[in-house]
Design a binder for these strands. Structure first.
Lengths: 218, 218
DNA sequence: GCTGTTAGGTTAACATTGTTAATGTAAGAT
DNA sequence: ATCTTACATTAACAATGTTAACCTAACAGC
């Protein structure tokens, strides 16, 4: 036994298959309306088999969220690169918006779903939280911190968490209203991308010491 | 029969009882986890009885939302009275925030719950939609329209719907993030009221032609 | 090579969900 | 006195997440 051949029973990639199928189905049909039986059918197993790999349906969701939060952080690191912190904040917002538009159902379960008793994996928290390379919130917070430190923001805006939460909250609100309400006819909804971009720019203009420094978009 | 004694069968307030109980339960336990059977039990009827008054569970939610939206509009009309449209916008935001802080679970099902097949009552739509006295969104939109008409906003901000949606979205985002995420330990959340108020003021400052005109709060 | 453990699978069932069909009943209208 | 309608019941349906009981083949250690 040369030590490395772990792999009990041929391959144990069933677990991976479950995750892939579940993500795909959650994303296309929404968490609540996807059934364990349907997942099992697509994978050509019995529903019970899934329970040998995940405690229950909610644990399946939690694990997908963890993976997707990390992917979002990677997305930020890859696409929000400007050295100027204010420009970077806008780039983060645009990356966030892009993610939300491309994966609305994933967005829904990541940011709009109350998970009862969120049992976060200890290792995951230890290696991820506060690390801008893996934690998307930390990445945004860091940009805000730099903007404050460089004296770019108005003097009353000195708490990086508060600034980060205001910016995140603003964009998130725009996105989530569209997800929840845009299929009702009550409000004449404007284009999400335009509104959210304008919102970010307006907020930045209002936060900056020198509003003329605010980035613009066509 | 002096014509006015409608009331078939004694009183037909069963319907009202169902609404009251359902609102209370939805607000305390969330829409999905409240069962028709549980509602029926609290009202001392069989589950089937509910279906004589409401088409299904979703229709029950829809009707509650309609009533509560009107209450919110009344709240706006009563407490957001400044003649100056910009001041009024901030007052609306504060009233909205107050409502959300006082009734977080009603807020949840009013603004954060996807209603499947929302079948709005025709009469309700006809008498309410677009009427600032009954439609909370219309009340906000009207304040934005006045601000635009008075030339207070930057020239690119000329669509009252877009401005209203940006403001609503911003505050809503702050509120809903707190509702969904604040009991997780991941982020160091700041005080909701402070953050949301600062967010509104920053947005207004960024939207105004003359930022110095922006309202302030202690 | 035999044996025990265990990862990973199956079948069958359970309790709970929203919802409906069939039926009863009593009040108001004719 | 009879008909209609509003409102309730009982019983059942199909679908859900989940679990108990059981099977089976692969690996580990003797």
């Amino acid at each position: 036994m040369t030590t490395k051949e772990r792999r009990p029973h041929e391959l144990h990639d069933t677990r991976e298959k479950i995750l892939d199928v579940a993500r795909d189905m959650f994303a296309h049909e929404g968490y609540e309306s996807v059934t364990m039986r349907a997942i099992a059918e697509r994978i050509e197993l019995t529903p019970t088999a899934i329970y040998h790999h995940f405690k229950n349906k909610s644990a399946l969701l939690t694990e997908l969220c963890q993976a997707d939060f990390q992917k979002l952080a990677q997305h930020f690191n890859a696409s929000a690169v400007p050295a100027d912190p204010v420009e970077r904040i806008l780039a983060i917002g645009e990356a966030y918006l892009y993610f939300a538009e491309k994966h609305p159902s994933q967005y829904r379960f990541m940011f709009m779903t109350v998970i009862p008793d969120p049992e976060l994996d200890e290792d995951y928290v230890a290696t991820t939280r506060g690390n801008p390379e893996r934690d998307a919130y930390a990445f945004l917070r860091e940009a805000c911190r730099e903007a404050i430190e460089a004296g770019r923001l108005r003097p009353e805006m000195k708490n990086p968490d508060e600034v980060a939460q205001m910016l995140w909250g603003g964009v998130h609100g725009m996105i989530s209203l569209h997800i929840v309400k845009s299929h009702e006819g009550w409000v004449a909804w404007c284009d999400l991308r335009t509104s959210a971009t304008q919102l970010m720019i307006a907020m930045l203009r209002g936060l900056l010491k020198n509003p003329a420094e605010a980035p613009t978009r066509p």
